[in-house]
Each structure stands twice: as structure tokens, then as C-alpha cells.
Design a binder for these strands. Structure first.
Lengths: 146, 146
DNA sequence: AGAATTACGTCAGTATGTTGTCATTTGACA
DNA sequence: TGTCAAATGACAACATACTGACGTAATTCT
């Protein structure tokens, strides 16, 4: 049963693993000068994109990670002054995670290097292809997410 | 400069991170009964697909990982009887990693669960979409791998 | 309102991956 | 052939993730 579709899919999965590693390495390298790591800019990005406040488990849900993993990162980032914990009117124990001024600056710096990077790397790729690719990923995410 | 292409690309990257995590979780769950983990079936898969022998750094290059990470996995797998190290006629120190009988059985079992899984999850996805997606991933891999 | 379930913070243990360093072996080249 | 750079094994330190377990707070349900 070596259907071409099956081979295609397995190839897709392996390529995805590979690209995931490469992108994290890319991101780490790109943000090294900013003192960020992949785990950190993921968190910063999620917080910056949310209009209402986010709790630690909330960030974890967006990223598809365990709340414990996110908690560990945010604790360090609070110590480092990028984030701060603010009282949550909706919840007595689960505080809100917000960007400090330093955190906002870091986000701006992140955007400043990320934007040209994104543009450079898609110059020669038709927008339709990106669109099909994204829809495929979303479809698969929905399939595997619970 | 919120070009749609840039937003599309960043969205693609985040989705890829997410799907990567989901797929590893899927794979771990799927192979749990076989006593395998994601790190292990990646290694088994690479060895099984190579006709000539592979060394530890060779496996690492295929997977796009550090040789140290692979070395640690293979050491444990040798202890567990899935792999064995064989003398390498081409190299005095860098031995070849081969599947033991137990390892070959594990690969067969892996295929037995992986194949239906791959087929089930692509039932409702047109082959053209998978193809475009794979080509996009390959294109990006080539861009970042150098 | 009271009980049961779910969510959260916290701590611990483990797996997987990275980088860095050092000594040794290989391989290429002047 | 002799030398030097690259590849390899081995060890260490660290970052990032997962799961499990526990007690407590919040929510849901009857």
C-alpha cells in the first residue's frame, strides 16, 4: 500500500520537522542581538498580539504548549524585566502577563528584524502558494488538535 | 508595512510551530504501545531508509540535528537492543549504526500503525494541495539550510 | 447552596535538543 | 610526505519541552 498520497504525507511530515528546526535556529540567530531566544519571542509575540490580557495558561493554549513550560519562561522574563504580572480582575490567583516598557521595546526591535526577514524570504514565492500552504497547515492543525 | 505576504508568512511560521508540536504528540501517542518515542522513530526511520550504512553524524545530518543529540539517543537504543554498532570499514572510530532484529521488528510495527494513520489523515485532502505544501516546505528548507 | 468538576500554581522528574570544549582520527593539500 | 583543517567521540552545562502529582481556587451543575 505505497499510495503516492501516503508517501507524500510522510514526506511532508518529515520536511515539517526539518523546517521547524531550521526556523527556530533562524529565529534564535536573528534575535540573538536582542537578547531573546525562540521561547521568549514566541511569548512576547503572543502577548503583543492579544488586545485583552492573557494569563499563563492562556498563552500556553495559544502556543499549544503546557502551562508549566510557559510559566517557567514567563517567570524568568519577569525577573529579566521584560514582563510583569498584573492583578487579574477576573481571577484571584491567575494573574495577567503584560509587557513592561522594556518588553514593548523588545517587541518593536523584534518586529524591526522580523519584518525584513519575512519579506526577503518570500520574495520569490507566489502569494497563492503561501496561501495554499497556510490553509493546509491549518487544516492539519484542526485535525490533530484534540 | 503590513504587507499581506508578510502577515501570511508569519502566520505560516507560527502555524508550523504549532503543527510540529501536534505531530510529535500524535507520533508519540501512536507509537507508545511499541515502546518508541518521537526521537526514536525518527532515528529508526532514517536508518531503515538508508541502503548503505549510516554513522551517527550521518544520521544527524539527515535529521538536521546535532550529532551529540543523535549520539545520546542511539546509545540508549543500543542498550535497549534496537540498534547495534558495527565496525566501519571506511572509518576506524566512527562506527555504523544498524538495526538489530528487534529494531527491524520495531520498524515493521511502526509502519503498521503509521501507514493507516497517514491514509486516514489525508482522506479529505486533495493530492494537489499536499503537493503544493510539500514543495513549499522544501523550498523554504533549501532557503534556510546552508 | 452544596457538590463535583475543572482550572491554576507549584514542585519534581524526565526527554530531547542546543552549544562548547578537548583529544583523536581522517582527509586534503602544499 | 608532512602539515593542517575538518570530522568524530566523549563529556559537560544548559534551554526547552513534557508528564505527573498535589493542594487550592473557580466554575458548573443539580
Amino acid at each position: 500500500m505505497h499510495s503516492p498520497k501516503r508517501m507524500l504525507f510522510l514526506d511532508l511530515v518529515l520536511s515539517l520537522f526539518r523546517l521547524n528546526g531550521l526556523l527556530i535556529a533562524e529565529g534564535d540567530e536573528m534575535t540573538e542581538a536582542l537578547g531573546l531566544t525562540s521561547a521568549r519571542w514566541k511569548v512576547i509575540g503572543v502577548i503583543a498580539l492579544s488586545n485583552s490580557g492573557l494569563t499563563v495558561p492562556g498563552i500556553a493554549r495559544v502556543l499549544g504548549q503546557s502551562r508549566q513550560a510557559v510559566q517557567r519562561i514567563t517567570d524568568v522574563m519577569v525577573t529579566d524585566g521584560l514582563l510583569s504580572y498584573e492583578p487579574n480582575p477576573k481571577h484571584k490567583r491567575s494573574v495577567l502577563v503584560v509587557l513592561t516598557e522594556e518588553g514593548k521595546t523588545a517587541y518593536k526591535d523584534l518586529r524591526d528584524v522580523q519584518d525584513p526577514w519575512a519579506i526577503n524570504n518570500t520574495e520569490d514565492i507566489p502569494i497563492e502558494e503561501l496561501d495554499v500552504g497556510l490553509r493546509l497547515l491549518r487544516r492539519l492543525i484542526q485535525k490533530f488538535d484534540k
